[in-house]
Amino acid sequence: MIGQKAKRMLFLISVTALLMGLIVSNAVAQQPPPPESGAEAEVKWFDPEHTNVLVVVVLYSAIVIFCIYYARRREMYIRPIAGLEAVNDAIGRATEMGRPILYVSGLSGISDIATITSMLILGHLAKRTAAYETPLIVPCNDPLVMTAEREIVHQAYTEAGKPDAYEPDNIYFITDSQFGYTAAVDGIMVREKPAAIFFMGYFYAEALILAETGNMTGAIQIAGTDADTQLPFFITACDYTLMGEELYAASAYLSRNPLLLAQLKGQDMGKVLLGAAIIIGVTLATVCTFVAPDIIEMFLSWFKV
């Protein structure tokens, strides 16, 4: 056990050294010429203006990690999320009707955590569809997302004991153009007539075009997005909508993995702290309208970025 741990550590350290070396050498290679004589720029290794960011990052990360590593053994209650309760019904309906399930993982590409979350949700979904061998169609607009999703779905099918049912060609790239992709997915909806459609991830204006077309075909639609501007449209056109943070809770919720559920506890603790800080800030701001306005300035300026 210890031997394995040590090996893992050694390995991590060596990879670190390798990568850091590369990054530094790259930096040195690209370093701009030294500033002209006289203007001796002082080399700084920490930006004091970001102290507040550092404090929040460290504090919140500590909370989340603490929750994950210490609270994982306890049974935890998670409130029901309607959209996720409906996932099984949606899969069941598709299986019964012998029609595919369509999964759209947003349009913001792999650089957005919403897309990454969506890929994780896809993994959990694939595990369930694999069991019934219900086809899962995933049109993509970012080739890196496509590559990752093939990997995730393949893994899910393997874990579900149906590696042979995995069909890589069902996860395919269309185009990276926002509306080109929209036109094609609209076409898929009316032609393949999926029984259930999932929209998970970050969406732009195409949200309503996709969701209305899906609605016309009569599919069950479950959406989840952190794009606050598009939430009204998903809410009007889809059967269930995961709003904002619910999207990030979804993979934990679907997996029922205690480690992931513990993360939700951490998020809740973050919310409590955040709410408390706001209430304190508002109280101080109100009180200080009458006495000592300088104090509130000091307090508030800490949050300024």
Binding site: V57, V64, I68, I116, Q155, E245, Y248, Q267, G270
Partner: peptide, 27 residues
């Protein structure tokens, strides 16, 4: 909504960085 999303984003990112989430890695 944004506060909740930010908390969710950070927690999810930590999960990926720390290797707790590894379905994309075939784990």
């Amino acid at each position: 909504i944004m506060f909740g999303v930010a908390l969710g984003v950070i927690a999810t990112s930590l999960r990926i960085l720390l290797g707790i989430e590894r379905s994309h890695l075939g784990g």
